[in-house]
Nucleic acid binder design. Structure first.
Lengths: 167, 167
DNA sequence: TATTGTTATACTCTATAACTATA
DNA sequence: TATAGTTATAGAGTATAACAATA
């Protein structure tokens, strides 16, 4: 009786808090990727920029910044570093001479492959205590939620995020 | 053929990246809770401190800080705010006169209940696109991973986190 | 007039170091 | 000597505001 974890008032302890779990997992993941990408200027966020730039549909740096939740002023410094490292360069967009297209260099693509291998290892360790089905549900569930949130906030209005989740 | 999303080189796009999904979900959750707890000094983190302090096994503020990934110097300011708000107070630990016990006031417990109701609503909206089984797997999966990480880093050595996830 | 990108600046958050008091 | 807690300060990261170029 005294052993039942859900009988006392502290039934809703930190352990049962989704926010706590999400925070711990996210911080651990961030920390691990930061360590694994210590040699990459800009770290995990630069990696995500590379992924977005290597993919097709993403054109200018503002779109990428929004997609990744990065401020456009921060994006400038980030891209400066990546360009200096020779993994990416900015080319003028022929359709809009204000904008810049992000082009990943061959060296950048090679780095990308390497980083993805490192990431896979980290993820395997992170999900080590789940069986295959659970992993799959966790991955696809998080992905689906993220896509929905991303869709709700397609270009500018990042405040809808809050509004959607507030009430 | 051209429609197959996994045929091209951008098979591993942002959408398939666990880190991206985790980041988007975490940021959205953090933003929503921050908005929902705008009236609470210290925001979501203060809420977590209240939960930890209201639970039994957590005694002094350093233990709580470690559990939540908060620096002990930051904890001081956080507790100052909470004490000023009258939801918590520090009492000397009779067993160790250096340490302080965290005691949640009746007002604090009432606030805690209210915040937990707000949180439940936010979580429902966040997980809206998952069915019951998926929700359960996501919750328990994240919780299990978080507990494992937390256990691997019981008191001091926060670096083991990285080491565990590095290779 | 609005938007992309840049720069400089200010601000927020967090960590470091030094200190007091206990153990 | 080591630890709990506090304080002041330095640092990293981020956002704000003003700007130039283009739409």
């Amino acid at each position: 009786m005294a052993q039942d974890p859900c009988e006392q008032k502290n039934c809703r302890d930190l352990d049962g808090d989704l926010g706590w779990a999400l925070g711990v997992v996210f911080r651990a993941y961030a920390k691990a990727t930061r360590a694994a990408m210590a040699d990459v200027p800009g770290g995990p966020r630069a990696f995500q920029v590379l992924v977005a730039a290597a993919g097709d549909q993403h054109g200018n740096q503002l779109a990428v910044a929004r997609r990744l939740g990065i401020d456009r002023t921060v994006m400038t410094y980030l891209l400066d570093d990546l360009e200096r490292a020779g993994v990416l360069h900015r080319t003028p967009d022929p359709n809009d001479r204000r904008a810049r297209c992000l082009v990943v260099t061959p060296a950048g693509l090679q780095l990308l492959e390497d980083l993805q291998r490192r990431l896979a290892t980290i993820e395997d360790h992170l999900l080590a205590c789940l069986d295959d089905d659970e992993r799959q549900v966790l991955r696809s569930g998080l992905r689906r939620i993220a896509l929905r949130l991303d869709e709700a906030d397609p270009v500018t209005d990042r405040c809808t995020l809050m509004r959607e989740l507030e009430t």
